[in-house]
Design a protein around this nucleic acid. Structure first.
Length: 302
RNA sequence: GGUGCCAUAGCUCAGUUGGUAGAGCAAUGGACUGAAAAUCCAUGUGUCCCUGGUUCAAAUCCAGGUGGCACCA
């Protein structure tokens, strides 16, 4: 049976380097599970691998989309699974790397099939919410789908919006689409988590932000500033610099803010990963141990 | 050297006419089904700078000390 080795961990911990070592060792490809490295207009702020690294190992779903095109997890699932199955015909194991928790879970477990909301419906529901407020949105959901209302995070307008959108568009309850079925994959999944002492991680993150600034993040952000309202640019490293361009904070403040947001993001990632007991954890400098571990695991599945 | 202002949570500061303290940020934990680097929720015991005094009671008033800032010499 083929094996997908998943390398996951908080931002800045060094997943890319480890994945590349691993890919070289197994002469295989890397599939990215990163919701921001996906965009070709973003390079520095999303820490995509260097040109040399990209040349050394074939990467998939890195800078393959434009920030101007709507993208979502479901689309990623379809594309990535298709690609993975294709690649398994000639390669094994494959490596999936990234920090986008939902993207990783989508590959590992699948995601329910919910009809994609049309831009018109989305706009309409959003406008309605803007006009009537959160409480009205809650009431609207209660009327459309009381079952989801009972379990929904009622303060989280994004969640409510989506549920309402789906009800509105399909004439069915949002709940009816939420079957929560785990999809069986025709390959084995081996999860490797990379983590290190919190203080060290924060230090690395802070340092990496400074390096990004030296590498020209400011200019990169300026080049996409005209499109700052795109969802794809609601992204750490860019939105903070947009505030600076807007004149609402100084450059130093913006850079500090990027560091803070990155740290928060790392923490959030760890919260998500913590509940997954199938992850085998390693430190960033344990590449050899990781290789040995995966070899042993691969042998066991043959 | 003189005068004035300030000293409260890791940081920036609130604290009403005295009744042993609370916001924002940070930090930490959690949730997560097509926006996910998004979005949402929860968590606040700290010699109220020190010493003495007044008072039933002091972060609060008084005196002195220490440190910082500003202005005048």
């Amino acid at each position: 049976m083929n094996t997908l080795i998943v390398i996951l961990g908080p931002t800045g911990v060094g997943k890319s380097a480890i994945s590349i070592d691993l890919a070289k060792f197994y002469s295989t490809d890397i599939i990215s599970a990163d919701s921001r490295q996906l965009f070709r207009e973003l390079t520095i702020g999303t820490a995509v691998p260097s040109p040399g690294e990209l040349q050394a190992v074939d990467h998939h779903f890195i800078q393959s989309r434009s920030i101007h095109h709507y993208y979502n997890v479901s689309e990623y699932e379809t594309e990535a699974i298709e690609r993975i199955n294709e690649l398994f015909k000639t390669k094994n194991p494959l490596i999936l790397t990234g920090g986008s928790m939902l993207y990783i879970d989508t590959i590992c477990k699948g995601i329910d099939e919910i009809p994609t909301v049309t831009p018109e419906i989305r706009q309409e529901v959003m406008d309605w919410h803007r006009e009537h407020g959160l409480e009205a949105l809650q009431q609207r959901l209660l009327a459309l789908d009381p079952e989801y209302y009972a379990i929904a995070d009622l303060q989280n307008s994004k969640r409510l919006l989506h549920a309402v959108e789906v009800c509105q568009m399909t004439g069915q309850t949002f709940t009816s689409f939420r079957t929560n079925t785990v999809r069986e994959r025709p390959f084995r999944i081996l999860k490797i988590g990379i983590n290190q002492q919190r203080e060290l991680l924060y230090h690395r993150i802070n340092q990496r932000v400074d390096q990004m600034m030296e590498a020209g993040l400011l200019e990169e952000a300026r080049s996409v500033y005209p499109y700052k309202d795109l969802n794809s640019l609601n992204t750490v490293g860019y939105k903070e610099l947009f505030s600076y361009f807007d004149g609402t904070c100084t450059l130093d403040e913006a850079v500090d803010l990027i560091k803070r947001s990155s740290r928060k993001y790392a923490r959030k990632q760890l919260t998500w990963f913590r509940r997954d007991h199938n992850i085998h954890w390693f430190e960033p400098d344990q590449v050899e141990q990781i290789i040995a571990f995966t070899q042993a695991q691969l042998k066991a599945t043959k």
